[in-house]
């Protein structure tokens, strides 16, 4: 019995390991087509779902086209092994290559169109919304944390602390809706431009990570021993000086960790941003122009995509997973571990 229980607990714990590795491998396999097709250049390519026509001289390339078509079919067979449901995959292959049969039969030149996918726009969108969110949320979150841990008397800090934590518990979709219908119009009036834009998405994302950041920053600040603060006060320091010279330096590592962790959360946030970013695959020309982020690109296109398009979305997911995994690891394993 002892042994059974022990092994059961060991396998449950290993599940975490298996799932994480599983996510990585699955995403990698599912994005393999896109990785083979676009390579690392995917990251810097600003196109998405864009048909590019390629003109090829028939005589010299008839053979290669035929070959490549055969390859495609083989690829799809492989794929349908993996994704057994996609019986209709052959119909979808127009996504990838459209071969005009008339051209093939009667013209000297063969026109093919090729659908191009690249991650630059969603990557830029993700980074910029996160950055805006961070710039907006950081000073306010620090202010809240200082207020809660140092300024407010206990009987006020406690309920306000709970209120801030409740704000963190509100589902992100609510932030998105509220942001779209109530917050964005005000920002659009102030700044001009569209209601759905990089700016409004970033700000709502900022409101969303605000309580999370404030709560964990406060927890870091609270680790400063009282006696250390007292001894600074005992030297005649003002509250601000104690905060600046004692509490911040003391809990610096933890605070940085909290900020990075909030950043990692913001990068992967979907719903709050989905309502507001505009969801168009175009590099933003101004802070108030619409664009798209990686999670939103996935949320809006996953159901409909197939073939190379779907594979490219998995590629995006893989990029997001690797980035946020790295950032969260740095925050948790380096900064927050060191702090505690």
């Amino acid at each position: 019995m002892e042994k059974i229980f022990r092994n059961l607990s060991l396998s449950s714990a290993s599940l975490v390991f298996i799932i994480l590795i599983g996510i990585f491998i699955t995403l990698f396999l599912a994005s393999k087509d896109a990785i083979n097709e676009f390579g690392i250049g995917f990251i810097t390519n600003p196109n998405w779902n864009k048909e590019i026509s390629i003109e090829i001289d028939a005589k010299s390339s008839n053979e290669t086209i035929k070959n490549s078509k055969v390859n495609e079919i083989e690829d799809f067979n492989l794929e349908s092994d993996l994704f057994s449901d996609e019986d209709d995959i052959m119909i979808d292959d127009e996504d990838d290559i459209i071969i005009d049969e008339d051209d093939m039969l009667f013209n000297e030149d063969i026109k093919t169109t090729f659908t191009d996918y690249g991650a630059l726009v969603p990557i830029v969108g993700t980074i910029l919304t996160t950055l805006i969110a961070l710039i907006f949320a950081l000073p306010i979150a620090m202010g809240i944390a200082v207020f809660l841990s140092e300024i407010a008397p206990k009987n006020i800090a406690y309920p306000i602390g709970i209120a801030i934590e409740l704000l963190a518990a509100i589902p992100s979709i609510i932030f998105g809706m509220w942001g779209l219908y109530y917050f964005a119009p005000i920002i659009a009036d102030l700044v001009g431009g569209y209601q759905v834009s990089l700016l409004t998405a970033g700000l709502v994302l900022g409101v969303m990570i605000l309580p999370f950041m404030a709560a964990i920053t406060r927890d870091s600040m609270n680790t400063t021993p009282d006696v250390l603060k007292e001894s600074a006060y005992a030297m005649g320091a003002t509250k601000f000086e104690v905060i600046k010279d004692i509490i911040f330096p003391y809990s610096k590592v933890g605070i940085i960790g909290s900020i990075i962790l909030a950043l990692g959360r913001a990068l992967g946030e979907t719903m709050a941003v989905a309502f507001l970013i505009g969801s168009i695959f175009a590099l933003p020309t101004a802070i108030n122009s619409p664009t798209i982020s990686i999670p939103v690109a996935m949320a809006n296109n996953f159901g409909e995509a197939s073939g190379l398009g779907e594979s490219s979305l998995f590629y995006l997911a893989l990029i997001l997973f690797v980035i946020s995994f790295t950032i969260i690891s740095i925050a948790k394993l380096y900064f927050l571990k060191k702090a505690s």
Partner: peptide
Amino acid sequence: IRNLSDIMMSAPSIVIGAFVYAIIVVP
């Protein structure tokens, strides 16, 4: 395991959606 689970807690939820899509919805 403790660290991985800690990290997994903050993993983007949409990526988990994509993972389940690939291993359950597609098959």
